Amino acid sequence: MQQSSPIGIFDSGYGGLTVFRSIAEKLPQYDYIYLGDNARSPYGDHSFETIYQYTLECVEWLFASGCELVILACNTASAKALRTIQQKDLPSKYPNHRVLGVIRPTAEVIGNYTTSKQVGVMGTRGTVNSKSYLLEINKFFPEIEVHQQACPMWVPLIENNEHLQTGADFFVKEYCDSLLAQANDIDCVLLACTHYPLLLPKLKTTFPDYISILTQGEIVAGSLVNYLERHPEIEVKLARTGRKSFYTSGDTKAFDEHASIFFGEDLKSAKM
């Protein structure tokens, strides 16, 4: 069988590059196509129907580009579009394709990081309002109580490269304080937006030392390794030249300038 299919990785903007970086480090042998829908980002405040439509369009573009396996490296898209795509669109139109998200892999392991069984989830309004983490974590760890906090100012701060400036301190402290006010024994906080790892330096100094702060890159990368081991019929199709391609629906120059902050190396994108 010809090994010709790249792994597609999708995000509404730049944040998914933090997940892509972890995946590429763990599985460097495969080819990848990253697509950021920067022209319509951020997704967080859009309706379910709009996010589903935007996500489906981008997934279909990745399918048309040769990807038979696509990772939604975006919590908002995973929360609001993944289930419909998996249950409605794949069976009827793309039975040989697979689309995976970031919420389930995280929910499967989060119980390993909490002793108090009190977990905080920080995400966009779209992710928080979807209650996806409440539902998914409850499936695997019904004893865990989940406390959610929407952080609508964090993505704009990060995408404008203001996240490490002193001007960001107010919004970091405001959302962290609001989360901790919900329960006094939270010992694990999940950053349920792939942009948020860029705030780790500030978050580590804001949260008490006893709180574990989880980012999703390594979790999702580990889950993908496991998935490919369990699905050799998919793994055997994957191209293996180590090529990484980057596309954006927005301005390529702006994408290249910002994307290196998330990916950790310079890159060159093309227009979607």
Rank of each mutant, 00 (worst) to 15 (best):
G8D: 03
F10A: 09
Y14C: 01
L17A: 04
F20K: 00
A24E: 00
K26E: 13
L27W: 04
Y30C: 02
D31L: 14
Y32T: 07
Y34F: 05
D37V: 09
D37R: 02
G44Y: 06
D45M: 10
F48S: 09
E49L: 13
L56Y: 03
E57W: 02
W61N: 11
L62K: 01
E68H: 14
E68W: 07
I71L: 09
A81W: 05
T84M: 15
Q86I: 00
Y94W: 03
P95L: 08
V99R: 14
P105A: 10
V109S: 01
S116I: 11
Q118Y: 02
Q118I: 03
Q118F: 00
M122W: 10
V128L: 11
S130H: 06
L134S: 13
I137L: 11
I137H: 09
K139R: 14
F140C: 12
P142E: 00
E143Q: 12
E143V: 03
I144H: 14
E145T: 11
V146Y: 08
Q148C: 12
Q148R: 02
Q149Y: 07
Q149M: 05
P152F: 01
V155P: 04
L157A: 09
I158R: 00
N160Y: 07
N160C: 09
H163A: 06
T166F: 04
G167H: 10
A168R: 05
D169Y: 06
F170I: 11
S178D: 15
L179R: 01
A183Y: 10
D185G: 06
D187F: 04
C188S: 06
C188N: 00
V189K: 02
A192I: 04
T194V: 06
K202G: 11
L203N: 05
D209L: 14
I211A: 05
I211M: 01
I211L: 07
E218Y: 07
Y227H: 10
L228N: 07
E229N: 12
E235M: 13
V236R: 14
V236M: 10
K237E: 02
T248W: 00
S249M: 11
D251I: 10
D251E: 11
A259D: 05
A259H: 03
L267H: 01
